[in-house]
Amino acid sequence: MSTQNKAVVYVRLKEGVLDPQGVTIHKSLQQMGYDDFVSVRSGKFFELEIKADAADMDKKIEEVSSKLLSNPVIENYTVEK
Protein backbone atom coordinates (compact mmCIF):
# COMPACT_ATOMS: atom_id res chain seq x y z
CA MET A 1 0.00 0.00 0.00
CA SER A 2 1.35 3.39 -0.95
CA THR A 3 1.84 5.84 1.89
CA GLN A 4 2.65 8.72 -0.42
CA ASN A 5 1.03 10.77 -3.12
CA LYS A 6 2.85 12.29 -6.01
CA ALA A 7 2.61 15.52 -7.93
CA VAL A 8 4.64 16.85 -10.82
CA VAL A 9 5.19 20.58 -11.18
CA TYR A 10 6.13 21.78 -14.67
CA VAL A 11 7.88 25.16 -14.85
CA ARG A 12 8.05 27.01 -18.15
CA LEU A 13 9.37 30.40 -19.16
CA LYS A 14 6.55 32.82 -19.92
CA GLU A 15 5.75 33.58 -23.51
CA GLY A 16 8.02 36.38 -24.71
CA VAL A 17 10.82 35.64 -22.25
CA LEU A 18 13.97 34.78 -24.16
CA ASP A 19 14.97 31.14 -23.80
CA PRO A 20 18.59 31.05 -25.01
CA GLN A 21 18.79 27.33 -24.25
CA GLY A 22 15.76 26.57 -26.40
CA VAL A 23 17.08 28.76 -29.21
CA THR A 24 20.43 26.95 -29.15
CA ILE A 25 18.79 23.52 -29.15
CA HIS A 26 16.63 24.63 -32.09
CA LYS A 27 19.70 25.79 -34.01
CA SER A 28 21.32 22.45 -33.35
CA LEU A 29 18.24 20.61 -34.67
CA GLN A 30 18.42 22.69 -37.84
CA GLN A 31 22.09 21.82 -38.25
CA MET A 32 21.18 18.16 -37.87
CA GLY A 33 18.78 18.55 -40.76
CA TYR A 34 15.52 18.48 -38.75
CA ASP A 35 14.02 21.53 -40.37
CA ASP A 36 10.41 20.55 -39.58
CA PHE A 37 10.87 21.78 -36.01
CA VAL A 38 9.88 25.43 -35.95
CA SER A 39 10.96 26.28 -32.39
CA VAL A 40 12.06 24.79 -29.08
CA ARG A 41 11.23 26.04 -25.59
CA SER A 42 13.04 24.46 -22.65
CA GLY A 43 11.65 24.06 -19.15
CA LYS A 44 11.93 21.94 -16.06
CA PHE A 45 9.81 19.70 -13.91
CA PHE A 46 9.83 18.64 -10.27
CA GLU A 47 8.48 15.36 -8.92
CA LEU A 48 7.11 15.84 -5.43
CA GLU A 49 6.37 12.96 -3.09
CA ILE A 50 3.83 13.90 -0.47
CA LYS A 51 2.60 12.25 2.72
CA ALA A 52 -0.71 10.53 1.98
CA ASP A 53 -2.39 12.04 5.03
CA ALA A 54 -1.17 15.61 4.44
CA ALA A 55 -3.84 18.28 4.89
CA ASP A 56 -4.45 21.14 2.43
CA MET A 57 -2.11 19.51 -0.06
CA ASP A 58 -3.38 21.36 -3.12
CA LYS A 59 -2.84 24.67 -1.38
CA LYS A 60 0.65 23.69 -0.25
CA ILE A 61 1.64 22.55 -3.74
CA GLU A 62 0.50 25.91 -5.13
CA GLU A 63 2.48 27.70 -2.41
CA VAL A 64 5.77 25.92 -3.04
CA SER A 65 5.30 26.21 -6.79
CA SER A 66 4.88 29.97 -6.68
CA LYS A 67 7.25 30.75 -3.79
CA LEU A 68 10.18 28.50 -4.63
CA LEU A 69 9.90 26.26 -7.68
CA SER A 70 9.09 29.08 -10.11
CA ASN A 71 9.89 32.77 -10.38
CA PRO A 72 6.57 34.48 -11.21
CA VAL A 73 8.42 37.30 -13.00
CA ILE A 74 9.62 35.03 -15.79
CA GLU A 75 7.97 31.64 -15.33
CA ASN A 76 4.60 29.89 -15.25
CA TYR A 77 3.90 26.53 -13.68
CA THR A 78 1.34 23.77 -14.03
CA VAL A 79 0.65 20.95 -11.57
CA GLU A 80 -0.10 17.38 -12.59
CA LYS A 81 -1.24 14.84 -9.99
Partner: peptide, 17 residues
Amino acid sequence: LTESGLLPGALIRNDHL
Protein backbone atom coordinates in the same frame (compact mmCIF):
# COMPACT_ATOMS: atom_id res chain seq x y z
CA LEU B 1 17.63 40.84 -4.55
CA THR B 2 15.41 40.21 -7.59
CA GLU B 3 14.46 36.74 -6.35
CA SER B 4 13.57 38.25 -2.96
CA GLY B 5 11.37 40.84 -4.62
CA LEU B 6 13.46 43.72 -3.22
CA LEU B 7 14.26 44.80 -6.78
CA PRO B 8 12.02 44.34 -9.83
CA GLY B 9 12.73 42.03 -12.75
CA ALA B 10 14.87 38.94 -13.14
CA LEU B 11 18.34 37.95 -14.33
CA ILE B 12 18.17 35.24 -16.93
CA ARG B 13 20.76 33.25 -18.89
CA ASN B 14 23.17 35.35 -20.98
CA ASP B 15 21.84 35.51 -24.56
CA HIS B 16 24.99 33.79 -25.89
CA LEU B 17 24.74 31.08 -23.16
